[in-house]
Nucleic acid binder design. Sequence first.
DNA 1: CGGAGGTTTGATGGAGCTCAACCGCGGTGG
DNA 2: CCACCGCGGTTGAGCTCCATCAAACCTCCG
Lengths: 245, 245
Amino acid sequence: MTKIAAVQSCDSCPIRYSAVCARCDADELAQLEQIKYYRTFDVGHMICWAGDEMPFVASVVKGAATLSQTMEDGRTQMVGLLLSSDFIGRPGRTTSPYDVTAVSEVTLCCFRRKPFEGMMMSTPHIGERLLDMTLDELDAAREWMLILGRKTAREKIASLLAIVARREMSIGLVKQSGAVMVELPLTREAMADYLGLTLETVSRQISALKREGIIVLQGKRRIEVPDMQRLLEETGDDVDGGVVA
Amino acid sequence: MTKIAAVQSCDSCPIRYSAVCARCDADELAQLEQIKYYRTFDVGHMICWAGDEMPFVASVVKGAATLSQTMEDGRTQMVGLLLSSDFIGRPGRTTSPYDVTAVSEVTLCCFRRKPFEGMMMSTPHIGERLLDMTLDELDAAREWMLILGRKTAREKIASLLAIVARREMSIGLVKQSGAVMVELPLTREAMADYLGLTLETVSRQISALKREGIIVLQGKRRIEVPDMQRLLEETGDDVDGGVVA
DNA sequence: CGGAGGTTTGATGGAGCTCAACCGCGGTGG
DNA sequence: CCACCGCGGTTGAGCTCCATCAAACCTCCG
């Protein structure tokens, strides 16, 4: 279901300093307020189908969405995982080449395309911020390519957990060492689409990691990592190379 | 071997209208001329090691370079293939997270980092162009993720050939239908690193495509595609979906 | 209670990896 | 001049990891 949510002020916005508007001053923010509106999508609903017209670009305020590509025969590959403050859409292009799906309840801060593109011309802060965010996404995509191309199923699962844990740690509130709690917003099938595996293999590898005590399940979607270092060793990444005495 | 090449004028530059400087006017170009210098790298040589200091950003003028990541145990994955007019380096970051390798003789148009970042602040044309190029690269990376995650070895090879053929066609000089000649600047091993395969599998699949007449080898690196449509059918991509009467 | 969606587990087969041998070619030095 | 070697490529044989097919389980909810 799609809902138009009540407009709230940018001042109290949780992603005020991390989204595409992060560097805008009060004046520029006021202009953005003019062209923005909120929309909410329930879990499982499509925000956009591949090839569809997208009348807006948007920031993810709350929740999680995915970008994915599907082949004729049904094989699908997730190509983007969008969390709070991530940007949806591409200035200068009117259709999305990807399916965009809400994997949890998602709130978007939408900007009508034309006015937004106008603002990009007039206020450099937005384009600059968008460039930085896009470069970050490109780095993430490249890390993902290593996972898809060269890692084993076990390493893929460990890497996914490590990536989400890292993101949750950077948002704050969890200590670096000791037990870490990870909230996975993905079904087994979505994890499989992310990692280029089948859902059965995902399930088996998670079971194996559980059996070995590397992770502890608390329900299906909450995962406790008793020893982050041990999980990182399972990712196949160089983990102690950066240790300096 | 690294060589400092003679400086040539931007006016006669082959990538004048496709590189990061594409939208610059004569005045801005004059500023860029002040901070640029050319360097050439022989085939096989490293332009930069992962983690190294990169004192410049650059445009590829001629030749091909790759970005790749290597795991501790030696598994490597290519994450970028840089051809004429592509951009190397990231403004605001001093080290490269990837190995950058010249896979053919490469000529770079280098800009010292600090002055270039200064120019990005003062002349919006550069940042705007870089944003567009980065978004294109992100799209390419995502197409690549589908290839790595979900395609069979055969589809991967066909996709690689199709991508290179498409790029050569967009550069010009080859007709859309009929036989197409593709110049592959990659060894079997590099293709394997690109596609997340072993070099043996690459070799076998190329042999199979040759046996079936879908491609014709002319030496090791030149490939003729007698019927592009047939090659495209092997990529697994939807190929006739866009046909309009 | 029954059904649907998500998950787990088992059995089996195959695509692609690994190990290994061999080929062709160009460079190099005795 | 040619024997040798290194490099890139091809081909074969066997094995392994993961996909596939199948069945059962759990939990929520109507």
